[in-house]
């Protein structure tokens, strides 16, 4: 296990790049998902008012 964490001396580079990559993908996905939820809510409200 320690060997894996160490990554042959390149631990900081490998883990930081994987971390940044997946962190930003997840954040980007969540931003869009939450935005979609918000917009759908507002849209349904206005639609009900018009109806």
């Amino acid at each position: 296990m320690n060997e894996l964490l160490d990554m042959g001396g390149y631990a900081i580079f490998v883990w930081s790049s994987y971390g940044i990559f997946f962190f930003s993908l997840v954040i980007f996905f969540l931003i869009n998902m939450l935005n979609l939820r918000k917009y759908e809510k507002i849209f349904n409200k206005t639609k009900n008012k018009i109806d």
Binding site: M7, G8, F13, S17
Partner: peptide, 11 residues
């Protein structure tokens, strides 16, 4: 390059 080339798989 050793283990540092694992970054290639996401880069």
């Amino acid at each position: 390059q050793g283990d540092s080339m694992r970054i290639m798989y996401i880069h």
